[in-house]
Design a binder for these strands. Structure first.
Lengths: 346, 346
DNA sequence: AATTAGCACTCGCAAGCAGGGAGTGCTAAT
DNA sequence: ATTAGCACTCCCTGCTTGCGAGTGCTAATT
């Protein structure tokens, strides 16, 4: 990447651009014609040989045009200018967006749906997730006999419900009283802080408390909130995924959510809030993504963030996708900021 | 369907069975050989002509074997015996199932995943949903400034969270007091009953109350609880969906959840609790499902039910799928019964 | 020394064609 | 009523062929 001449760079950029548009191997003559280059095809060919040797291009077969390699795409993404999204697109998106009902999960699925539609690919959105879970509120509701439903709300609005099996039937009054005592005692504490407190004297309180701690521990260990996605069918239309079981393997990521968690963690670990990360061809780590790219960004406020991104074919219109992801991430950040900022900085 | 001779019926059943296994047009000779019929291929051919005229079979092209029509599948499903699931499969399933964590949403996604894996198709599960929403509990949690998070719990355990924008900042104490008053006043009422009560005197109470009613109205109008599904990639492996955009159209149903709601409503409206409904080829109503079949069942207890089912190619091993759906529906019913039965009958 | 024209060569792809095979419908014999 | 026999249909496969886009190399040009 260091030793590319200006001309090589120009050729590479044009070629990748053209290939992204047309999905066909690009030949020297075609390149000269489409972009009115002041060079002969033969010269282009010589440079193509160089670029191929350097690993930026490859030939699907002898006597075919050139196609970008993963490194070729990486170079392209690193050097292409990502324009601001056009005004009218920004308006369309923000308009769709402000029709959201005031439920957090509706925001998320709306963001997923708008992004999928804009990018014509699979969108990935995770709900905002607090880095350290803090207790906000618990409610225990008797359902029948020894069963009760525990609703645990964390600071930041994550809600978790769970069935609680008691050793004997307990009245709603006693359950409410216990919840109220715990609310008092645990307000805004982490599960570690709760564990450090003296154990609850009352047996019922202790049971509920144990479940709270177990729940909070599990939520703390998660790296992201609930997953939303949309646009699966967009990607099935792409030529590289037709009749190809690479597509199946990539889609299976969504069914084994663990894998996706891994990817999110590893990719976003070093990223700062505004930055968009691009993961091309699985980067050698994820075999199932060999044909795919992922464009990912954080959103939110420090300590309370989610992820938003796109999964599509490696041949993806990055110069459009990246600004789109960035723009919608910005909208979500604003939303989180308006709604939750106070709580985290208290 | 009335006027089929025993022999015609036997031929039709065998042919459908064979086609489901092999996905290839079935010829007369093949049928005789595989099933050692005591008839000549010519006789079979004559009967095939009849069955074709009656609309149970068709030829992909002249001089090819026969393939079932939608009516052919319907006949098959109506007349095939659905054996009990083998003991060991039952054990496997119920074992996987009892490892569920005690959260309702985990049950649902586990059911979806187990079913998808067993049937090698797309599973559909909706969370249990009360026919009439009854208020159980509300909690209002201040987040920052004028924003608050309202958590509404319905009898039956459906939980809904929503952002509440107040006209001015309100302390957590006042919010809790208001919630407590409303909990007292609205316990186990429907939204119609709440509307019939005298309006709340306090302005804050009235605001929250309005949101509760709005939320409950929306939840009441829904026909099913939250949707879970799994196994999308199973179906992409089927030959009829390769490089075929019918597959895309069918999968898009999951992204436009409205369509799926329609299907659930219309299909299950008349069905009783144990009964499994089979929807073949979209039944003429859903163009997008022309190539697909859906096997659906209710589960739950009267007044508090969900749906569970399978979407797969029309060429589906019904005699396995149907018992599997039935069995898992039974498991879910037991679970709902154990956890929530008391509440609904109170 | 860099660029380019010229050219032989490679290889995928589509079209065309032949042969085989599975399966059919019809007719006549059983 | 059933079946053997048979001509016919049509898909599928493999093979050949020609075409075209594109390459790499060499020698000429600037």
């Amino acid at each position: 990447m260091l030793d590319l001449t200006e001309r090589q760079k120009a050729i590479l950029m044009l070629l990748v651009r053209d290939y992204i548009e047309t999905a066909q191997a690009i030949g020297s003559q075609r390149l000269v014609e489409r972009y009115h280059l002041d060079l002969s095809p033969a010269t282009i060919r010589n440079e193509m040989v160089n670029l191929t040797e350097m690993g930026y291009l490859r030939q699907p077969h002898t006597s075919a045009g050139r196609v970008p390699t993963e490194d070729g795409y990486r170079f392209f993404v690193a050097h292409v200018t990502h324009p601001e999204l056009p005004e009218n697109v920004q308006h369309t998106i923000s308009h769709q967006f402000h029709q959201a009902r005031p439920e957090v999960d509706h925001w998320m699925s709306l963001a997923a749906s708008v992004l999928a539609q804009q990018a014509q690919a699979i969108s990935i959105v995770t709900a905002p997730h607090a880095e350290t879970a803090r207790f906000k509120h618990v409610e225990v509701i008797s359902t029948q006999g020894r069963q009760a439903l525990m609703v645990l709300v964390l600071a930041g609005g994550e809600v978790n419900q769970q069935i609680l099996s008691l050793s004997e039937p307990v009245s709603q009054e006693r359950l409410s009283a216990a919840a109220s005592r715990l609310n008092q005692a645990y307000a805004l504490r982490t599960y570690e802080e709760i564990l450090a407190l003296p154990p609850r004297a009352d047996a019922l309180d202790a049971d509920i408390s144990a479940l709270i701690v177990q729940d909070m521990r599990r939520l703390s260990s998660r790296v992201a909130g609930e997953l939303y996605y949309d646009g699966l069918t967009n990607v099935l239309a792409e030529p590289e995924f037709n009749a190809n079981d690479d597509a199946r393997r990539a889609l299976r990521l969504f069914e084994e959510r663990g894998a996706l968690q891994d990817i999110l963690t590893q990719t976003m670990s070093g990223a700062n809030l505004g930055g968009v990360q691009v993961l091309i061809g699985g980067e050698g780590n994820w075999e199932d993504l060999r044909q795919c790219s992922i464009v990912l960004s954080h959103y939110g406020i420090p300590g309370f963030t989610g992820n938003i991104g796109i999964l599509g074919p490696m041949r993806m219109p990055y110069s459009r996708t990246i600004p789109t992801v960035r723009y919608i991430a910005g909208l979500l950040s604003d939303l989180v900021n308006d709604t939750f900022a106070g709580e985290q900085t208290q």
